[in-house]
Amino acid sequence: MNEHRVTVDIDDLGVATVTLNRAEKHNALDGAMFDALLQTTDTLRADHRVRALVLHGAGKSFCSGLDTSRLGQDGGAESLLDREEGHRANRAQRVSVDWADIPAPVIAAITGNCFGGGLQIALGADIRYAAPDARLSIMEIKWGLVPDMGITQTLPRLVAADVAKELTFTGRILNGIEAQAAGLVTRVVDDPLAAALDLAREIARKSPHAIRAAKRLYDQTWAGADPAAALTLESELQVGLLGSPNQLEAVGAGMARREPRFADPN
Rank of each mutant, 00 (worst) to 15 (best):
T17E: 15
D191V: 10
V6H: 05
A181K: 08
A104W: 01
L242Q: 14
D35V: 10
F34N: 09
E249D: 01
G150H: 04
L38Y: 03
K165D: 13
R205M: 09
G57R: 03
V15G: 02
P105T: 12
V95G: 04
R49N: 11
R5Y: 08
L184N: 05
D82C: 10
A28S: 10
A46L: 15
G75F: 07
I107W: 05
A134S: 14
L53I: 01
E24D: 13
D82L: 12
A28V: 06
D67T: 07
A122R: 00
M1C: 10
F169H: 15
A225Q: 13
H26C: 05
L44Y: 04
G176S: 07
L81A: 15
D12C: 03
A263S: 14
D133G: 11
V97Y: 06
A228Q: 08
D101Y: 01
T40S: 08
P227I: 07
G116F: 11
T40R: 05
R135Q: 15
A229N: 12
W99D: 01
A46D: 15
L44H: 05
A196W: 00
I102D: 02
D264S: 10
N246W: 00
V95N: 06
N175M: 03
F34M: 08
A230I: 12
S79M: 15
D133I: 09
L20D: 06
R91D: 09
D198Q: 15
P245G: 11
G117D: 10
E140I: 12
N90G: 05
L197W: 00
G183E: 03
D98E: 10
K206M: 13
A228F: 02
G240W: 02
A204C: 06
A131Q: 09
A109H: 03
D219L: 13
D198F: 10
A32S: 13
E78V: 15
P103E: 03
R51P: 01
K206H: 11
D191Y: 08
V54G: 00
W99N: 03
F169I: 13
D82Q: 14
L184G: 07
A16G: 13
V106R: 00
G224H: 04
A104E: 02
T170D: 09
P105C: 12
A253K: 08
S207Q: 09
A195Q: 14
E78Y: 12
R257L: 13
I211R: 05
D9I: 08
L71D: 09
P245R: 01
A16H: 06
L145F: 09
G183M: 05
L55Y: 01
